[in-house]
Structures are given as C-alpha cells and as structure tokens.
C-alpha cells in the first residue's frame, strides 16, 4: 500500500471527472459483453467434440468476460480509475486474497482435477 505521505485536502475527484456520456458508453459495452456471454454459453460446444482445448475455450472465455465486466464496473462505475490509488489498493487486496485463498481450498479438494464433481456413491 503506497499512501501519499503528505496530508492532502479532499478534492472529490474534481478535475478528472467522468462524464455521463462515458457512463452510457460503458453500459452499452457491458450490455454487449453480457450478450456475448450468454450466446457463448449457448454455443453447441458438445457437438464440436470434447477435447480439453475446447473445454478451456468455453470456460476460459466465460471467465475472461466475467473478469472484464468486473474490472470495468469497478474502474468506471465505482470511479476507481478516477480516484486515489489507495482505494484500488484496499479493494483489490481483498479481491486477490479471496481469489488466491479460495482457489487453494478448491485445489485441495481436487476440484480442478475432477474429484470435487464426483458424487460420493
């Protein structure tokens, strides 16, 4: 966490203030990505075979679009892009710890190697 050491006066983001036009453009972008996401999940992936590469393309594509939407909402709608870096710091600190820790938990259950999805009997 690098905090500006000096005592600074609040500025309420005056100056680099985003406009409503930017927000509307962002919303359109998010709507388009959401449409692609849904379409992506409706693609006939099974008909194209069940290779690992196809599976990674299906799931990886969805996860990438999800991460993109998350990032765009946080940066633009939540103003992280226009605000002081300390806010980005504390928030993504939590996001990163959550992602790393819970991925580790799921790994110990062999979730990514098939064990987690198997019925017990």
């Amino acid at each position: 966490m690098s905090v500006d050491a000096n005592t600074v006066t609040l500025d309420h983001g005056a100056g680099a203030h985003p406009t409503d036009k930017l927000f509307i453009k962002t919303a359109v972008l998010l709507a388009v990505v959401t449409a692609v996401e849904v379409a992506w999940s409706y693609l006939p992936w099974q008909d194209w075979g069940d290779s690992r590469a196809l599976y990674f393309a299906e799931v990886g594509g969805l996860l990438a679009m999800m991460a993109f939407k998350f990032f765009v909402v946080a940066s633009v709608f939540m103003h992280l892009k226009f605000d002081r870096k300390i806010l980005t710091g504390v928030f993504y600190f939590g996001v990163v710890i959550a992602v790393v820790v819970y991925l580790a938990v799921l790994s110990t259950f062999h979730f990514f190697t098939g064990g987690g999805s198997v019925l017990p009997h």
């Binding site: 820790v101 938990v105 110990t108 259950f109 019925l119 017990p120 009997h121």
Partner: peptide
C-alpha cells in the same frame, strides 16, 4: 447426503 466435512475445517482454519 454427500457433504464434505472438510469444507468446515478449511473455512474455519482460513
């Protein structure tokens, strides 16, 4: 019903 008690252990110790 197929639950895994280790889930509790993990969450608790995290």
């Amino acid at each position: 019903q197929g639950a895994d008690p280790l889930l509790w252990q993990h969450l608790f110790w995290i």
